[in-house]
Nucleic acid binder design. Structure first.
Length: 480
DNA sequence: TGAAATGTTGGGGCG
DNA sequence: ACGCCCCAACATTTC
């Protein structure tokens, strides 16, 4: 064991894979000791939400980028795999570290893990120091006038604006003094990227994981899209959203940095609208913080007895983009191919699963969890509950998206559907979003055979709407 | 961050 | 010239 005055501190990086504006890193450096950055892949124990397939692909590349960024500042990145509650104390013992600095956990399972670890470390005379690194605001500090928790977005957002950001960002250090590292796993041995089959080529063509990629995405968004964000963000066929969600989910960029950069670059409706989206992300984290069962149980208790349908064939058709509804299929295929889906289309595909197919939002959440590169437990859970109508500030049961009308409204030239459902591309705009309404000669001219080259609708929009209204009727407003 | 049904109004075709 | 009807356009209500 090394002498106490030379002992280092651990920087335990979890979902804040960045050096810029990282309060955990700043806290570790402020100790005045050498800093050893570590990452623990804790995906072996059952019982928590381990990263899904797409997220693991992202994690691999983000860790590779982080390793290079740390090396440029003279620091290693130590990789370990196993239960964090065992691996962190083990690393503490190996290095003689006095303190462990980490970002504060938002997931309920991670909070329990942290509390146990804090006790364990305290038993060894070591300190666990948590820093808020993922949220803009302390969730315990945003309260209603009567001291309660917000359950409606608008007043929550007002309270956030009123509070304001707390302090300037902390820039990345030029140098990170670090001790000789203990043994590390090799990233390649974790097999986070797919081999056979390699389904990740579409992801690699779409994304640049890592802190530099996050900064580039932010810059590109501010330059090209912020000014007209409020008008263009709902059009899935163009690149008009920030596409920062996976970078934010892994903490490759801090929400504070995004907030400040946008505020400095924009104004008016475009800016207001974008900051609101950041606050929706904040609201989701806030809800998860105050409602730990959000991923499993409906916030509105009466929904616990809703008779969701079991329909494996329909679920699979939805997952694979074979529902026969062009806009729904385009969205689900974008997700499958790129690990991401445009936000408006997320609402439409989710609404189709929950309302038209009457399949539980938890099935949808599980699929998104496995296929999204930006999978985040708070956002995923809160958003699915919102669509299903059982969440906070939720869409009422009778608010049912018509995927044909949504297509005509937000994808009028069919650019989005044609990109992801190419077998329908030759159809004229008029029938692109509802091919079952096209006359036979029009289908023939476009070489579309319904039930052949493209499926007939699993459930037609009008019929699904009627069925959903009947199913949800009486549940609304009636306490369990 | 909805859609559909229903109600209202006003212009224009037409007997 | 007038009343009637149709219907588009918009507003309101309902689910």
């Amino acid at each position: 064991m090394m002498p106490r005055d030379a002992a280092p501190v651990l920087l335990w990086l979890r979902a804040e894979l960045r050096l810029d504006d990282n309060p955990a890193l700043a806290g570790a450096l402020a100790s005045g000791r050498q800093v050893l950055p570590v990452f623990v892949l804790d995906d072996l124990a059952p019982g928590h939400w381990a990263p899904g397939g797409a997220a693991r692909w992202w994690l691999h590349h983000s860790l590779a980028a982080l390793d290079a960024d740390l090396a440029a500042r003279g620091a290693p990145l130590v990789l370990r795999r196993g239960e964090a509650r065992r691996e962190i104390p083990r690393l503490v013992a190996e290095t003689g570290a006095l303190e462990v600095h980490a970002g504060d956990p938002t997931e309920p399972w991670a909070r329990h893990q942290m509390e146990a670890l804090e006790r364990d470390l305290a038993g060894q005379g070591r300190r666990l120091v948590l820093h808020r690194a993922r949220a803009l605001f302390d969730p315990d500090a945003i309260r209603t006038g009567t001291g309660g928790w917000f359950s409606v977005f608008s007043p929550f957002a007002r309270a956030c604006h009123a509070r304001g950001l707390d302090g300037p960002p902390c820039p990345a250090p030029a140098h990170i003094p670090s001790p000789p590292p203990p043994p590390s796993d090799r990233l390649a041995d974790w097999s986070l990227t797919p081999r056979a089959p390699d389904w990740a080529s579409g992801l690699a063509a779409t994304w640049r994981p890592g802190e530099a990629g996050a900064r580039a995405a932010l810059r590109a968004f501010l330059d090209a899209s912020l000014a007209a964000y409020d008008r263009r963000r709902d059009v899935p066929g163009i690149v008009a959203t920030s596409r920062l969600s996976p970078h934010l989910a892994w903490g490759e960029i801090s929400p504070r940095r995004v907030w400040l950069a946008a505020s400095g670059a924009g104004q008016g409706r475009g800016l207001t609208s974008f900051l609101n989206e950041l606050l929706w992300r904040e609201f989701s984290q806030y809800l998860l913080h105050h409602h730990p069962h959000l991923p499993e149980a409906p916030l509105r208790a009466e929904f616990a007895r809703f008779p969701w349908r079991e329909d494996p064939a329909a679920l699979r058709a939805w997952q694979r983009g074979r529902t026969g509804i062009p806009l729904v299929d385009a969205g689900m295929r974008e997700l499958w191919q790129t690990g991401w889906m445009h936000n408006r289309v997320r609402m439409i595909t989710a609404s189709y699963l929950v309302k038209h197919l009457l399949i539980s939002w938890r099935e949808g959440a599980a699929w998104f969890w496995d296929t999204l590169v930006d999978a985040d437990l708070g956002s995923n859970s809160a958003s699915w509950q919102w669509v299903a109508g059982c969440g906070a500030d939720a869409a009422p049961y009778f608010r049912i998206f018509n995927p044909v009308l949504q297509g005509q409204k937000f994808d009028p030239d069919g650019a989005y559907v044609r990109r992801f459902v190419p077998e329908l591309a030759p159809l004229p705009d008029r029938f692109l979003h509802a091919p079952w309404e096209a006359p036979e000669p029009v289908l023939a001219a476009a070489r579309v055979r319904l039930g052949g080259t493209y499926p007939r609708p699993v459930v037609l929009p009008a019929a699904g709407r009627e069925r959903a209204l009947a199913a949800f009727h009486g549940l609304d407003g009636i306490p369990a």
